[in-house]
Design a protein around this nucleic acid. Structure first.
Lengths: 198, 198
DNA sequence: GTGTTTACCGAACATTCGGTCAGCTGACAA
DNA sequence: TTGTCAGCTGACCGAATGTTCGGTAAACAC
């Protein structure tokens, strides 16, 4: 019978592995700075072989961006994100965001660098803005409920808070550095309780 | 006599205005995503005319990156950055960094997106790492002097602190939003004293 | 007026780009 | 043994890339 291993034919390439390698190279050189030649070299195959597995460069980008965005939107649909005191929800969302960022690091990294150069990028940007609006609303609620200092504009707090979270993509390497939980602890400690000894 | 206005001949383009426009477009579309055609359109001249004013695309990038880096290195040579309690110097460096970031926004924005695709980019990356090392050292001193909470790794503090500062480039518009001083106040307040009401 | 310089244009350059396509190959089925 | 087909190759395409070059109109110097 020899049940087909379904993934072991040929040289072992499939749409998934092509996407994975592509995203890695996109993050190294930037999407626009990466040619299909570059991709082929990294994959150990020819340019044209790539087109057997995936429709083209831009779809590769689209799939990667969706993978990042789907994670974020699944998260903010969770009951933990929509009920309870705003400050609790906010802490939970920050913690989960760090997790998702670490779990899907290359995809989120790519997402954060998108500038809207194509329809694909613009669509991703629009979804990202929707996510930002959700978080921004959460911060405003936490401020209204008196759990966040009132002397800093909530919109600014949102930007700086998620600026901090997102900056993780600039340096984090899964091999070195702590776990996602340790990272989230550090960020929540600094952001909510401050750096200064008291 | 008609003393030459020295900058008003032709259509009024010079290396400086070309650089300024170029950096704006680079930030909109990304350096690799910007063609000389795009640049020419934004400048209201032809592609070839650009080469009368500047040697080429990569030198345009190099000059822009130097402008950002020179600002940062001039800053950390200041006496305020090299003597006194580390916590005071750190606060001063953060405040000045925000200023420089705002003053030279497009140049710093470009710098923060560089990935090392060419010798020009690699050189800029190396200078940036040198700046990071300076700040990192400052944070370690402040921790050793007991002015920063000891339960978070200083290297991590550095990254998150400057991740926050640098994230300003993602949204700041000089027209809207507060002044550099107000921004710096908000960042120092949040980072050192925390978001939470107490 | 004559000669020179400044600031530019249009066409062309070699190269690289993303993408296509006919055809080959080796594993497997019948 | 023949046929099928997934998985791939190499040659190639038109378009776009950064850059160069010959030419030129207007402003200036004398």
């Amino acid at each position: 019978m020899t049940t087909t291993p379904a993934r072991q034919r040929g040289r072992g390439h499939d749409p998934e592995s092509v996407l994975h390698t592509a995203v890695t190279v996109f993050n190294e050189r930037g999407y626009d700075g990466t040619s299909m030649e570059d991709l082929a070299r990294a994959l150990g195959m020819t340019k044209s072989a790539i087109y057997y597995h995936v429709p083209g460069k831009e779809q590769l980008l689209g799939r990667a961006l969706d993978r990042a965005l789907d994670g974020l939107f699944t998260m903010i649909a969770d009951p933990m994100a929509v009920s309870g005191p705003a400050i609790t929800r906010l802490e939970w969302v920050v913690r989960r965001s760090v997790s998702i960022l670490v779990e899907r690091l290359p995809y989120v990294t790519l997402l954060l660098r998108v500038r809207g150069n194509s329809a694909t990028e613009q669509h991703a940007l629009e979804r990202r803005r929707e996510f930002d609006r959700f978080v921004s609303h959460l911060v405003k609620e936490a401020a209204a409920e008196g759990h966040i200092r009132p002397d800093v504009d909530p919109a600014l707090v949102t930007r700086l808070l998620f600026g901090t979270v997102n900056s993780i993509t600039e340096w984090y390497q899964p091999s070195r550095g702590g776990s996602a939980d340790e990272l989230a602890d550090a960020i929540l400690t600094i952001a909510f309780d401050g750096l200064r000894t008291r």
